[in-house]
Design a protein around this nucleic acid. Structure first.
Length: 217
DNA sequence: CACCAGGCAAGTA
DNA sequence: TACTTGCATGGT
């Protein structure tokens, strides 16, 4: 059972960065587009999300008030390629309604909250869970919080750094208790984990040539 | 053909 | 509290 130190976490980061370079997340979007994309990409391939984003963009609807005044049914039709379109249309409406009603649809007003308050606000919205909330805080608000996803858990579990049933806060704490709050670092680190997870840490694992081969364990 | 992707909430016991 | 299930398109 390896001990998870700051040095170990930084080693993994540099191994992944050295192999893949910067991932440029979140791909070319304004903060509001990141918020929308964070909901659309729930359990869904990003390529599918891009089609949905394009549909909204082409019609000039990818703004807080554009979506605010759009019916849930019509929104669902436009985001259809992203999958779960009925569920996601409701979730987006929930997010946009709260964002416009309580923050006037201004990202700057949301950013004036503390990270804890912003997280509590986002989590109080039906359809926004921990990963989506943290993705919005990190990639839209550009505040330092570590995003944990299924790949993060799988990689750490396979390297015996966490148990299989480790909960979100446990995994997040593993990183945040050891690394100084650094938005750029957390941004790149999560993106690299997703990249490595996709290419190597699937079922079955493709460990040959994985940048984390021989790391921790 | 099967499998799954940058999750989440609601239902069940 | 601890599982289970529904949601859905598009790529490999």
């Amino acid at each position: 059972m390896p001990i998870c130190t700051r040095e170990l976490l930084l080693e993994a980061y540099h191994l992944m960065l050295g192999r893949f370079g910067r991932q440029h997340w979140w791909p070319g979007e304004t903060p509001f587009e990141v918020m929308v994309g964070a909901v659309l990409t729930q359990n869904t391939n990003w390529k599918n999300v891009e089609k949905a984003i394009s549909n909204l963009k082409e019609r000039g609807l990818l703004t807080p008030r554009g979506l605010y005044h759009l019916s849930t049914a019509e929104l669902g039709r436009l985001i259809r390629p992203a999958g779960y379109y009925n569920v996601k249309a409701k979730r987006l409406k929930n997010l946009v309604t709260r964002f416009v009603d309580e923050f006037d649809g201004e990202v700057s007003r949301l950013m004036s909250l503390s990270v804890e308050d912003a997280r509590a606000f986002l989590l109080s919205i039906n359809g926004i869970g921990e990963e989506t909330a943290d993705s919005i805080i990190l990639y839209a608000l550009e505040r330092p919080i570590f995003v944990v996803d299924a790949y993060t858990k799988r990689i750490l579990f396979r390297h015996s750094l966490i148990s299989e049933d480790a909960i979100y806060s446990e995994v997040q704490g593993l990183f945040m208790d050891r690394l100084e709050p650094d938005t750029a670092l957390f941004n790149e680190y999560h993106a690299l984990i997703v990249r490595v997870g996709k290419e190597y840490c699937k079922n079955p694992p493709k460990c040959d040539d994985c940048p984390l081969m021989g790391w921790a364990r």
